[in-house]
Design a protein around this nucleic acid. Sequence first.
RNA 1: CGGGAUGUGGCCCAGUGGCUAGGGCACCUGGUUUGGGACCAGGGGAUCGGAGGUUCGAAUCCUCUCAUCCCGACCA
Length: 573
Amino acid sequence: MRLSNAFLKTMKEVPKEAQVVSHQLMFRAGMIQKLASGIYNYLPMALRSLRKIEAIIREELEKKGCQEVLMPIVQPAELWRESGRWDYYGAELLRFKDRKDSDFCLGPTHEEVITDMVRKNLKSYKQLPWNLYQIQSKFRDEIRPRFGLMRGREFIMKDAYSFDESVEKSMENYQLMYEAYTDIFNRCGLKFKAVDAATGAIGGDKSHEFQVLAESGEDGILSCSHCDYAANEEKAAVKERQFKTDSSIFTPLEEVHTPNQKSIEEVTAFLGKKPEELIKSLVYMIDEEAVLILVPGNKEVNEAKIQAFFNANVVHLADDKTVEEITGAKTGFAGPVGLKKQIKIAADRGIQEFPNMICGANKTDYHLTGVNFERDYKVEEMGDFIHALPGEPCPVCDEGKLEEHRGIEVGQVFYLGTKYSESMSCNFLDRNGKQVPAVMGCYGIGVGRTLAAAIEQNHDEAGIVWPMAIAPYEVLVMPLQLKDEDVVNVGNTLYKWFMDLGIDVAIDDRNERAGFKFNDADLIGYPLQIIIGSKTLAEGMVEVKIRATGEKLKIKVAEIQDWVVNFKKEALK
RNA sequence: CGGGAUGUGGCCCAGUGGCUAGGGCACCUGGUUUGGGACCAGGGGAUCGGAGGUUCGAAUCCUCUCAUCCCGACCA
């Protein structure tokens, strides 16, 4: 590509709406342009990098036996009604009608379509395993798109879906994809961590996220300082402990007047107690069922854990009216003792730590003191319902503590089980001639987000520092003095040589001053700059600048091809 | 959806009731320059987000609306 004719405009200043470095640099380097909030045009430089990431993905997935398909973005509502998600996917699913008034949506993900596609073709276990993938645009009407390609509404995603005859076989597929993802992100030159993850609206019960470590990451990750445990903050487990109960120190249950003292802070201040001596009691709607959730007063409820524990589709706090109906008191005075309407009670294990706790009395303006587990109330479910925090002991080993990192989620693998195959009757005949649902997994990679994450991780003050594998161009040939015929000729010759060698090469043949070209080259981040100047050329040499290190070398013109080919080979190892 | 903020050439910004709306970057022409974002001269490009209102007069004041960004809630 000749820069003199490139569809490319670089910029010194950034629009103020670009807040993170990857967005700023992609904008300045002329890679993307915003069309609407969270919706971007990909210009040639960006597309070249995206295509390289896609090529790596295709290679690694084909190695694992995956097969590429392409499904439509526009999807009929009836499939979503069949899976049940039409009703609870929420506003993120962009819905619309066609001219015949039929409901459609833009695909935010493709479990429904793929399951439908597969069930029309799947008859026998002999056909399995299948792992089908596509690379395609998704649309999710995010409440708050942000950070350029990091969280767009329309974005390019690789999604894959596996179909197996058994849970064991599905786990094998899961493992293959885990390996493929590791290879893919390594090849893209990223530093990342695979962490335990929650499954959210996709469903299923086993999942790992691939998190690129970066300060600007939206996700919190907790990892052990000692062992290799790592999990998304919302999934990270709290270590199980043994609690001893000494009923001899139990004090009697007492009602105390706490007028207008609703929050944990208010009640602890009013009674002169510590937050951990309170039981935080919250009424949650878990799908259609109201459940009282108890956690220690100094901890935060973790809705993701509740959703997973109850295998629920939707979890949210009950509204004030429901709370009043159940407790018989205004909100802020709920507790496990003496509920007006008996509902299921589920408690975090941590509430057993202290005796003589305080909780709402289910009576407006009153709390109870001397509340003791088992003696005064029982719970149906006991589990881990709170957020783990940095500094807490590792849930797996006995040595380590949890440390916090920020991460950008570039990929996620899920074990789905039969959630979709059952609701959508994606069945086959097994070895015993019995009709059974396929066991599924699904696997996503945010392609654009991977690009953004690569920039977040690889840049300096001057601009992008591309890993060789995903650089839009590997080499930029820079003839500096366009009035010097030798310089121009050598520039054109090298440009042709590199193209013939299969190197991705561009030539800066613009009539600009040297400084301008250098700054532009550093901004765009070509891994290698081949600088051709009159003086060095007179010695039969050209200069090579290695973007990653800033190193400059003089190399004989006759040796430059071998040198570059070799450098590229080393960089891609 | 709650809180905060912003909309003035492609980008960054100035202009808070009064002449034809300014500057920098970018763009075009000519000249000088030419190894780390050059300089001089000339030039093109804006219905000041939109609609309505107040006023002799509105980018500026008022009302509504649209869009965008940040924090939160939410979300692969």
